[in-house]
Simulated scan of single mutants.
Amino acid sequence: MSGPLRGAPLQVALNGSRDAADGAAVPMSPRALAESALAAVAAGADEVLVHPRTPCGRESLSPRVVGPLLEELRGAGVRVPLAVPATIGAEPDRAGRLERVRDWSVLPDRATVSFAEPGARELGRALLARGVAVDAVVPLGGAAGPEPLARFLAWAPPDHGRVRLVAELARADPALVAGLRWLPPVPVVLYGREAEAWPVLRLAARCGAGLRIGVGEVLRLADGRPARSNAELVAAARDMTAEAAPWDAGAPDAAARAGR
C-alpha cells in the first residue's frame, strides 16, 4: 500500500458522553450542536456523529429526541451524513433499543452499534431494514478481548456496502490494524480516546483508514493544549493527515479498502 487513500472519511464526534462539566468546547443544546457541526464541516469534517439527549442531559434513542435533533442539524444546513449511537448508553434495555429504532420517524444516515454489547447483530439487521447504514463498533487491544470482533465476523451482514467496521484502538499499534486483514469487504474507520486519540488518528491516516476526532473522543489538541471547539480539532486532524507518512509494513487489505 503506497499511502493514505484520498477520500477516506473524517467523522467528527460532536459530543459523545461529555456534559457541561467538561468545558465550553462541548456543545450541549440542539442549536449549539448544529452550530458546532456546521463549523466542523467547514473545517473539513465529512460526517457528523451526535449523541441525542433529553433536556435534562440523558442520552436517548426516543423518536421525540432523535428526530428533532436531526431536523435541527439538517435545518441549519448540515448536509453531510449524520450518525447517532444505538447503544446501551442511549437505551440500556436490549428490546428497548430495537423498539426505539423501529419507531424512528426521522432517520439518521448511519447508526453506531457496539459489538461489545448484547443484541448487536439483531439491532444491526433492524437498522439495515430501515435503510440506516451501520457502523459496527469493535474495541481492539483492550479489556474486551477478541469476542466483539468475532461477533462481527459471525454476523455476516447481507449488504456490505452499508456496513463499516469502526475499530476503537486501545493503543496506536500497527499490529492491531494488521489483524483486520481477514475482514469481509467493508470499509474501516479507526479511532482512539483521550491520550490515544491523536496517535491512532495518525496511524489511521498512514494506512488509509477512515478517521474520527472531536470532543466526544478527546478534549485536547495533539500538543496538549485544550481544544476550543470541534472545528479546531477537525482542522488539526486535517493538518496531521496531510503530513502523515505512508505506512507500508504489513498494511492489511482491510485498511486498503477503507473509505471506498
Results as ranks from 00 to 15, higher is better:
188 V>S: 07
139 P>H: 13
154 A>P: 04
56 C>F: 10
214 G>A: 08
111 A>G: 10
32 A>N: 09
145 G>A: 12
60 S>E: 11
93 D>C: 11
224 G>C: 09
187 P>Q: 04
85 P>W: 10
62 S>Y: 03
99 E>H: 09
185 P>K: 14
87 T>H: 03
111 A>W: 09
96 G>A: 08
159 D>Y: 07
176 L>I: 09
203 L>H: 10
128 L>C: 06
228 R>M: 00
107 L>S: 04
230 N>E: 05
229 S>D: 02
182 W>H: 15
77 G>M: 12
135 D>N: 13
201 L>M: 13
7 G>I: 00
196 E>T: 06
190 L>A: 11
141 G>I: 06
72 E>Y: 00
137 V>W: 02
127 L>F: 02
122 E>V: 14
112 T>K: 06
149 L>M: 11
14 L>T: 04
58 R>I: 00
136 A>Q: 12
217 E>S: 15
149 L>P: 09
146 P>T: 08
205 A>S: 05
191 Y>F: 15
103 D>V: 01
60 S>Q: 11
249 A>R: 12
45 A>T: 06
193 R>D: 05
77 G>P: 11
147 E>S: 14
7 G>E: 01
75 G>A: 08
189 V>Q: 14
198 W>Y: 06
136 A>P: 10
157 P>Q: 09
113 V>C: 04
114 S>C: 11
6 R>V: 13
117 E>Q: 13
30 P>F: 09
160 H>R: 14
170 A>Y: 05
230 N>T: 05
